[in-house]
């Protein structure tokens, strides 16, 4: 899908052709000229032009990806949408956030990934304990390459920059994605005990250290941790 665009009236740019734009904050419009995008299954709400929809097994990574996903339990049902025209995607009125990748890796919970350009590779990676706390499994989805990805969040996501001087603590239920060179570990050193004894031991946070961006949603999924 990458290549020099040669259509008249367009500058010659070395980038993928599918154009991602937001229609309001909850609908993603993708303008396509014969190319393809990968999108969460069932997330198409409308389209103009000619489109074909094809279900992909194993998150679009072929047989190997499928086996990996079976093993890792990171569920991702993806469809490939291909055609000419504009396709509109939305998912249960979630807010949509666009992320432009230029070679770096995006780590994202599979349920928060709406759509990626075909130029981007998706895979899975081991996340350690964080996944376990969310019941999402120990593995998270990675998106690599150059192109655009659309993330879902419950409420408008906040993007927070982590620097070596300013580490960040995040409620595990509010975390959706991150990029950059970040180390993450559980932080439970919170002095938290109520006089009735209820709700103790729930103060888990993920601490991010290093250099990168963390995407946080203003809402919390059901978690074991993070009752602060």
């Amino acid at each position: 899908m990458r290549g020099l665009s040669q259509r008249p009236g367009r500058s010659l740019t070395f980038r993928s052709v599918a154009q991602f734009r937001l229609q309001g904050s909850k609908v993603l419009a993708v303008d396509m000229t014969g190319d393809a995008v990968k999108a969460k299954n069932g997330s198409m709400v409308a389209y103009e032009g000619d489109m074909t929809f094809k279900k992909m097994t194993g998150g679009g990574d072929g047989l190997r990806g499928m086996v990996t996903r079976r093993l890792t339990g990171e569920q991702m049902t993806v469809m490939e949408v291909k055609g000419h025209g504009t396709c509109y995607f939305a998912d249960r009125a979630s807010e949509i956030n666009l992320v432009s990748l230029t070679g770096e890796t995006l780590y994202v919970e599979a349920s928060n990934l709406l759509c990626t350009e075909a130029t981007l590779r998706t895979g899975t990676s081991f996340t350690g304990l964080r996944g376990a706390s969310q019941g999402n499994g120990l593995f998270t989805t990675t998106v690599e390459g150059t192109g655009q990805a659309a993330l879902l969040s419950d409420g408008t996501a906040i993007v927070l920059r982590v620097t070596p001087q300013t580490p960040l603590s995040v409620d595990p239920g509010a975390y959706i994605a991150h990029t950059g060179r970040l180390r993450q570990h559980f932080q439970s050193g919170v002095n938290f005990r109520t006089f009735l004894g209820e709700g103790s031991g729930e103060a888990f946070q993920i601490r991010f250290e290093g250099d990168g961006l963390v995407y946080v949603q203003p809402s919390e999924r059901t978690t074991f941790g993070g009752d602060v």
Binding site: G24, K26, V27, N41, G42, S43, M44, V45, A46, F53, K54, K55, T77, M79, Y88, A90, D91, R92, A93
Partner: peptide
Amino acid sequence: EFVGRGSGEAFQLELSGNGTVYVQASE
């Protein structure tokens, strides 16, 4: 590809003519 998979994309409502359709950001 979708049969038996419960995808919402199996059927689509095709609207043609001259007018406006209102679509919500959710299924």
